[in-house]
């Protein structure tokens, strides 16, 4: 079942085609990988889906409803959450407060501040940050800031979670741990779209992969098919 579907999505920055005529779909419950060289348009596509940017042409449907043109907070409340390439946490607020805001404004149901605080603790436990609940977000390690961002996104009760380079800049141990967390999220029934540069990680975790290059979709398929696709090999390794 298709949960998210985009057709002919285009975004230009002046004369640059950041995303050009991309058709894509995401199936319910899968982990979809989005790869491509730097400047391929991966983050731009995330920004269009989450309404950070407006697309010039094309439509995006979520759960059968058109979401193009909606405001960012509406997209979030309707069930699409995201993290950011460079972490965007609320530095001067505690980890608990970071997640609390998401619960109070993004989860779609009205809850009290006390309930929000209890549920926030549950999410912090889920991502492994329980003992850091009263730490200021800016004082957390990078790996933990990324976990916090994931917890904050999950607290909005999403159907789809978009992870933008969640393991970039982490060491091997941290990467393994975060990949385990991604699987744990998928097992909760949340569909995941992830942008990643670390090939080993993305090949092992994704059900399907879309490859973007110069704003265009050049390949789509299972990790095995992508790994042996001649165009993809050419782009990544050169002729």
């Amino acid at each position: 079942m298709r949960i998210l579907e985009g057709e002919n999505v285009c975004k230009y920055f002046g004369g640059l085609k950041a995303v050009s005529g991309v058709d894509f779909h995401v199936d319910h419950g899968e982990i979809l990988g989005l790869i491509g060289p730097n400047g391929a348009g991966k983050t731009t596509l995330f920004n269009i889906i989450s309404a950070s940017l407006a697309n010039e042409t094309g439509n995006i449907h979520f759960d059968g409803k058109k979401i193009t043109g909606k405001k960012a907070h509406h997209i979030c409340r309707s069930g699409i959450a995201r993290t950011f390439q460079a972490v965007k946490i609320f530095g001067a607020m505690t980890a608990l407060e970071n997640v609390q805001v998401a619960l109070l404004f993004g989860c779609g149901t009205k809850i009290s501040k006390k309930q929000a605080s209890e549920q926030a603790m549950e999410w912090l436990e889920f991502v492994g940050l329980l003992k850091d609940s009263s730490t200021l977000a800016k004082d957390l390690t990078i790996a933990n800031q990324k976990r916090l961002e994931v917890a904050r996104a999950l607290a909005t009760n999403p159907k789809i979670l978009m992870l933008d380079e969640v393991i970039a800049g982490l060491n091997a141990t941290e990467t393994t741990e975060l990949m385990a967390l991604v699987r744990k999220i998928r097992d909760k029934g949340i569909t995941i779209i992830m942008i990643e540069h670390v090939m080993k990680a993305i090949m092992s975790i994704c059900d399907r992969i879309i490859v973007l290059h110069h704003g265009e979709k050049i390949a789509e398929g299972t990790p095995e098919a992508i790994a042996s696709n001649p165009t993809v090999i050419e782009i990544y390794l050169g002729k």
Partner: peptide
Amino acid sequence: KYGLALRSIGQNEEAASHIGV
């Protein structure tokens, strides 16, 4: 909760809008 929202806007407005504020 609006006090929390105001602080989150001050910290990172874009992130605040993407978690439903």
